[in-house]
Design a binder for these strands. Structure first.
Lengths: 231, 231
DNA sequence: TACGAAATTTTGGTATTCCAAATTTTAAAT
DNA sequence: ATTTAAAATTTGGAATACCAAAATTTCGTA
């Protein structure tokens, strides 16, 4: 009997997502390690050790390092030796400015293009953040916060924007997480998120741009404060 | 005799620039090929053939493909087979929006941070564009135009912004080049460039943002027209 | 002739190996 | 004890070999 119907359909569906490579897996795992601080910033990365740790050869591991280089999590020295990135405050400042511009654009586009359902989903996530703060741990609440911003960018309908934004999110994840741990300005965050949601729901592009830009500025000073006292 | 003085200094200086790898070279060459249209958009890329053509093995060539993937010049299908990217008008539209946001930010930052010398250099490049249009060929004039925008972004002093902008430049290079070949709206370009330079020289951040955003809108409609009639 | 299945070829992913550059260690000289 | 040169080690870059998945061709059957 020739295969037909749902079986074929399911197989095609599965086939649509590119089969994950060892390199992509390693990149995911390594990213997690770096973001959670299990690999200290500035620490040299030895390909052979890491490859052995992951149980893969150097070839895919090298590729994983390249991926993370693109995300700013791994940096290469003048002699091509990789190490865990250790961005200065000035670099992070630069990243936040770009991230701000991207989110501001996302806000505008989302006001224009998002479906009503997408906007409601954004509002929903924002409400879930508060709950997560109480019921789940800090980390889960932080993850929810990231998802809030991702949802806004996704709703813009601009795939390139979403991808570029994602790489900046990766670079900034750790420092933003540390900053959020300080627990300052919870009330400020709540208010700024409310402003963002309100602007989006009323599809006021200018207000959305303003609210998101302002939100990033706040993040900037929080991060600066965090890094100062960490030093 | 122990090596000292200028010899050591020179060696250290040379050592500072990362030795370029075969992969980086191949990426440069391949990028050129794609941008000049010697590899048609949509064409499948066979690693073995290309590696042989470049006289290198597949290992560094593969890496070169990854680099160009990051720049949007190579895309991978569901079965991990690489091909020369063939962006739709919708995708290009998305890219231009992001590029616009990046340049708008660059305009703001340049007004704040650029040295006087950098601003004069930007003005100088803009003047050189007109000359190149007469004395040199179209391609040289186009390259000068790219340099104009690069100089603005570089003057912002934000390295991450410059890098991200560069990747979008790479993606958009070919379609912008084709669009510029149509030769329409030379006068419009001249006027818009003048507005940009004026805003920067007077360090009027709001005006710079506006002028650059507007310039990108113009590029957008030119490109749309070019692609329509090419189809 | 048209269709489909099986055999063949092609292709990218990965492991292994070798090599040159860079780093570290060792040892000798002052 | 300090410095410097040479030897040994470590490290990333690149070539090669092999494999499984995918695409193509071949060939038999209706």
């Amino acid at each position: 009997m020739t295969e037909t119907g749902w079986a074929t359909e399911l197989r095609d569906f599965v086939a649509l997502q590119p089969r994950k490579s060892l390199a992509a897996d390693a990149a995911d795992n390594l990213r997690e390690f770096i973001l959670l601080g299990k690999l200290a910033p500035g620490m040299p990365v030895r390909e052979r050790d890491l490859a052995e740790a992951f149980g893969i050869s150097r070839t895919p591991l090298k590729e994983a390092l390249r991926i993370l280089e693109g995300e700013g999590l791994i940096s290469y020295g003048p002699t091509r030796r990789p190490r865990v990135a250790d961005p200065s405050l000035a670099e992070i400042h630069d990243w936040l400015r770009v991230q701000g511009a991207l989110e501001a654009l996302a806000g505008e586009l989302t006001c224009q293009n998002a479906t009503e359902a997408q906007l409601l989903r954004i509002e929903e996530i924002n409400l879930a953040i508060k709950e997560a703060r109480d019921t789940e741990g800090q980390l889960e609440a932080f993850r929810m916060d990231m998802r809030f911003h991702e949802a806004i960018v996704a709703a813009s309908g601009n795939r390139a924007l979403a991808e570029t934004h994602a790489t900046y999110n990766a670079r900034l994840w750790r420092v933003r997480f540390l900053s959020s741990q300080r627990g300052i300005s919870r009330e400020t965050t709540r208010r700024e998120h409310a402003q963002i949601v309100e602007a989006l729901l009323s599809r006021d592009a200018a207000a959305a741009r303003k609210a998101l830009t302002n939100h990033l500025r706040t993040a900037e000073s929080n991060i600066a404060a965090t890094m100062q006292e960490a030093k």
